[in-house]
């Protein structure tokens, strides 16, 4: 694989995470537990969508086959998507939405601080803008985790279930393959190994304040780094790509 191909796939992976998580959050529009929270979740979805646009556009430029961010989002097959399994998990209830946000935002909080130091100036610039947004996402998710964990019996139980249900998708956050390692030697990619402990400490402290238990170590699901997903992604893409697929000649 050439360096260009590696950088393309690495950027695509970052872009896909933002795109799919944004899609999940956008499904909640008009369904928030209170109007204020509806707007808050939409703000996060819009941050992620903006990030997806920037990253997919850059991926298209690296690839050099004249594909736009829309071509990459709307004309790519499921097996060529590389978003984390966690991002595609359903909005089962508000606790699951918050648990997903907590796990991902905590990871991204550390990831983008490192990526800002990347030798790739475009990725570094995108990371610089992203880190500000992610700080806010993390605060939002932490505050809600604590409120729900330390709220009523029902909210505590729901939050604990959500944490338990999604725990098996958190191993993937730190997965790396040959692409990462190659780009790492060139100072472009982030080494996620050292992030794992920081992530654990941060999650522990939030869960602790929320009176929630950290799940026991369990088998961690994997696959997205090779384009193998849960059943959910296919449905997301079927919906998202519908118009572009049904009317391939149309410009929107």
């Amino acid at each position: 694989m050439t360096k260009k191909e590696e950088l393309y796939l690495y950027t695509l992976r970052l872009g896909d995470n933002a795109l799919i998580l944004s899609h999940r959050l956008s499904q909640l529009c008009s369904k928030g537990p209170i109007l204020e929270e509806d707007l808050a979740l939409t703000n996060i979805a819009l941050d992620l969508l903006g990030r997806a646009q920037a990253l997919l556009k850059y991926a298209g430029e690296i690839e050099g086959k004249n594909r736009s961010e829309d071509d990459l989002a709307y004309r790519r097959e499921e097996k060529n998507y590389y978003n984390l399994l966690l991002t595609e998990q359903p909005n089962k209830d508000f606790a699951h939405v918050i648990a997903r946000q907590l796990f991902i935002s905590t990871f991204e909080f550390f990831l983008f601080q490192e990526l800002e130091k990347s030798a790739d100036t475009t990725l570094s610039a995108i990371a610089g803008k992203t880190i500000k947004e992610v700080k806010y996402h993390l605060q939002h998710a932490s505050d809600w985790t604590i409120r729900l964990g330390d709220g009523t019996k029902e909210s505590h139980d729901r939050m604990q279930s959500a944490i338990n249900d999604l725990w098996m998708y958190t191993g993937e956050l730190f997965e790396m393959n040959g692409i990462d390692l190659d780009l790492l030697t060139q100072g472009i990619a982030v080494d996620t190994i050292p992030l794992q402990k920081k992530w654990r400490d941060c999650i522990n402290s939030v869960l602790n304040e929320a009176t929630l238990f950290v799940p026991k170590d369990t088998y961690m699901q994997t696959g997205s780094i090779n384009g193998v997903h849960s059943e959910h992604l296919g449905h997301i893409l079927a919906e998202m790509q519908y118009l572009q697929r049904a009317y391939p000649d149309a410009k929107w």
Partner: peptide, 12 residues
């Protein structure tokens, strides 16, 4: 805005 605590009020 509506909010249950000061942090939520600030974020909202």
């Amino acid at each position: 805005v509506h909010a249950s605590d000061v942090k939520m009020a600030m974020q909202n």
